[in-house]
Write a protein that binds this DNA or RNA. Structure first.
Lengths: 97, 97
DNA sequence: TATATTTGACCAAATTAAGTCAAGTCAAAA
DNA sequence: TTTTGACTTGACTTAATTTGGTCAAATATA
């Protein structure tokens, strides 16, 4: 589940149009279309609006949003999974300090 | 092991000074100091020079370099590990397509 | 046909990258 | 104990990239 998919899911479940959600977010509908298909990422502030509007966990949205950023960074790398493992070790190691 | 630590390790093992390695990389020694302590990241091209100079696996350097970028992105997040898991799922999912 | 969505090309503003320089620290040598 | 050499740090700069969009045209979809 990507942040874009989640937003689309929330929007469609409530029968909202892109145009309408775009209006709430104060962006154009073309931009929202790209957000839903993960071609662009929205800014973090938008998560607040979406969270309130659909009464959906902010924290979960934030996790998806961050995961999407990580994904973007390594999606084209063959070693993507290995890279994540190394990063994870680093985080776990730091916690022991 | 971070990319900075690895570079420092390689440099010290050969008794090289920061000033000398910095010269090879064509940067200032203050900058190299920051790279070794992960305050700055070097550009990818520098990995080639380092790989050749110390005869150390380019691929491994690249993994550390990427991991460092991922780490930078989420290091301050409480949910860092969870975020990595979500990103990992995304990568694995995409592979099945 | 009309309405909803997608896409590609483009843009300005904000952010990050990629450094530098000067001053400071720190350990060891003189 | 002063000096020296290696390294670190903070403040700053400039250029490149990314972000956060828009608009018009193309494509579904009903």
């Amino acid at each position: 589940m990507t942040i874009g998919q989640k937003i689309r899911e929330l929007r469609e479940k409530t029968g909202m149009l892109q145009r309408e959600l775009a209006y709430e977010l104060e962006v154009g509908d073309a931009y929202l279309s790209k957000i839903e298909s993960n071609q662009k990422n929205l800014k973090k502030e938008h998560l607040t609006t979406i969270s309130k509007l659909f009464k959906y966990s902010y924290s979960e949205l934030e996790t998806l949003w961050l995961a999407n950023k990580v994904y973007d960074l390594i999606k084209d790398e063959k070693k993507a999974i290995e890279v994540l493992k190394v990063a994870e070790q680093e985080i776990k190691y730091r916690k022991t300090l």
